[in-house]
Amino acid sequence: MSRLSLVPVTSLRTQAWANGAGTTTVIANGPDDTHWQWRLSIADIAQACTFSPYPDTRRQFVALDAPLQLHFDDGRDVLLLRLSVTHFDGADAPHASLPEGPTRAFNLMLRGATEGALIARPLNGSMWLPLRAQWRWFVHLLSGRADVHADDERIAMDAGSSLWIDAQPGERVRIEGGGELVLIQLATAH
């Protein structure tokens, strides 16, 4: 069984926002497109706008290119610097402003009992991924190049590519290279 699988570019779906302020590219969701419990996407935010509400959804969100200012109805303001992650309730649709111009943002959405974590960070050399039973890793390489190793398997990644890692405790997963990446750790069963 293969532990590493690249996400084919042909499987990505880009859709315009109803308000015309940007587009979203859906990378993956599960268990299916209609009744998803988790969703991974990248938003291209072209102008100041109000996000769509997603009731009963927990969001984890990271600015990828330029800072993003989120203004919530309860008076909270969150300045999201590049590669910094925030968490918010999807029903609380914030207004976004772009202090330095258009940006992209990586979005992890979770529903029900589904668990997950979003991490954005530089890659400089080698890093090992901790493995847990019934969890999987997702890697999106923002910039640079990387080699992902899972025991005896190896896949090379270029900027913009995405990869699923399905390895179990006792196996060894290592990412080597230079650049920046987004990591998602996602529970696959409860």
Rank of each mutant, 00 (worst) to 15 (best):
M1V: 08
L4F: 10
S5F: 02
L6H: 02
S11M: 01
L12Q: 05
L12I: 03
W17E: 00
A18C: 00
T23D: 13
V26M: 14
N29H: 11
N29T: 10
N29S: 11
T34W: 00
H35S: 10
W36A: 08
W38L: 03
L40I: 14
L40H: 05
I42R: 04
A43E: 11
I45K: 14
Q47C: 12
T50Q: 05
F51E: 04
F51A: 05
S52E: 08
S52Q: 12
P53M: 04
Y54M: 10
T57E: 05
R59F: 01
V62T: 12
L64F: 12
D65L: 11
A66D: 10
D74P: 03
R76V: 02
D77Y: 03
D77M: 10
V78C: 06
V78M: 02
H87A: 01
D89R: 01
D92W: 09
A96M: 07
L98D: 09
G101Y: 09
N107I: 04
M109K: 13
M109G: 04
M109W: 12
G112T: 08
G116W: 05
L118M: 00
M127N: 14
L131M: 11
A133T: 14
R136I: 11
F138I: 06
F138V: 11
V139H: 10
H140D: 09
A146W: 01
D147A: 15
H149I: 15
D151P: 06
A156G: 15
G160I: 00
A167G: 04
G170P: 00
G170W: 02
E171Y: 02
V173S: 13
V173C: 06
G178N: 12
G179V: 15
L181Q: 07
Q185A: 07
L186C: 10
A187Q: 15
H190T: 07
